[in-house]
């Protein structure tokens, strides 16, 4: 996983999920919902819940997804997490 704290933009993604303003466990619940609906999509989750830094990687481990990138959200508010299916 690449942690880009130097402000670089996230790699390409298919779907965006903006959960800023949501508190745990809602960001991960909605991430799971979107991932189930679209299992092959690359998902970019935006969240400002402090728990997301621990919970998104933990969820990825439990569900066999890969947290491919984290960094600041594109507009600078909150964090972005790129969640992708494992390489087949």
């Amino acid at each position: 996983m690449t942690d880009a704290t130097d402000g670089t933009a996230p790699p390409p993604y298919d779907r965006l999920l903006d959960e800023r303003g949501s508190r745990c466990p809602i960001p991960v619940v909605n991430l799971a919902r979107m991932a189930n609906a679209d299992p092959r999509a690359r998902l970019l989750l935006l969240a400002d819940d402090p728990a997301a830094d621990s919970d998104v990687p933990a969820w990825c481990s439990l569900r066999g997804k890969v947290l491919a990138w984290t960094g600041p959200a594109p507009d600078g508010c909150g964090r972005a997490y790129l969640v992708v299916p494992p390489r087949m």
């Binding site: 466990p25 621990s54 919970d55 933990a58």
Partner: peptide
Amino acid sequence: EPSHVLAAMGALTH
């Protein structure tokens, strides 16, 4: 904030 202990372990906090 979640527990600093759980966060330091990289564990699921919710």
